[in-house]
């Protein structure tokens, strides 16, 4: 599907009224994308327990089409749930690069946003956005499962506004801000 999408703008461009077709295609593709945001099963610290609670009985993330996948190769979303230590930074970049595009990141909790209570520690990365681009920041220490719901709904809003005319997905545009850490 990705290959077809890359060619699609060119086809639309030569057709009269192509943008109309494009808008309809955008709406359809975005709708299907946002309804099945599959996160990679990946927890770091305290927030991971709240993430598990969100998957479990009371909150039931499946209702939003959020179904955890054990492999990054099958996932669209990475939930950075917890403190990112410096030792973990390189594996996170590696996992992120293994995910297929378009890929999204929710930075869950204060630690992933900015270091949180460990902001002055020698071993903690001050915000996961130093190594990978982040779509939604979620405050709280830890955020409640309801807050995680809100973050996913916000991400869905963002996905709904994506345009295939701007590239194959959201990723090329997002990754402009990313920073290469260089060889470890």
């Amino acid at each position: 599907m990705g290959v077809a999408l890359e060619k699609f703008p060119a086809i639309c461009g030569v057709l009269p009224g192509g943008s109309g077709i494009l808008t309809t295609a955008d709406a359809f593709i975005n709708w299907s994308r946002k309804s099945s945001v599959w996160p990679v099963t990946f927890g770091l610290a305290c927030c991971a327990i709240e993430m598990m609670a969100a998957y479990a009985s009371r909150f039931d993330f499946d209702r939003l089409g959020v179904i955890p996948r054990p492999s990054p190769r099958q996932a669209d979303l990475m939930l950075i749930a917890g403190t990112v230590s410096k030792k973990m930074a390189d594996p996170i970049v590696q996992i992120y690069r293994q995910m297929p595009e378009p890929r999204f990141v929710i930075s869950m909790g204060s630690c992933a946003n900015c270091g949180g209570p460990f902001h002055d520690s020698y071993a903690v990365l001050k915000g996961v956005d130093k190594i990978i681009p982040v779509d939604v920041y979620l405050a709280g220490c830890p955020p409640r499962p309801e807050a995680l719901y809100y973050a996913v709904l916000k991400l869905q809003e963002k996905i709904q506004q994506m345009k295939i005319g701007h590239g194959a997905g959201a990723a090329p545009q997002q990754e402009r801000g990313s920073r290469d850490l260089g060889a470890p």
Partner: peptide, 23 residues
């Protein structure tokens, strides 16, 4: 191990006792 090492023992040395409970 050490992928979640946050240096809590070091941080306690600059936090008051009440703040250490939070850590």
């Amino acid at each position: 191990i050490g992928y979640l090492h946050r240096g809590i023992e070091k941080l306690c040395e600059t936090r008051s006792y009440g703040q250490c409970i939070v850590l």
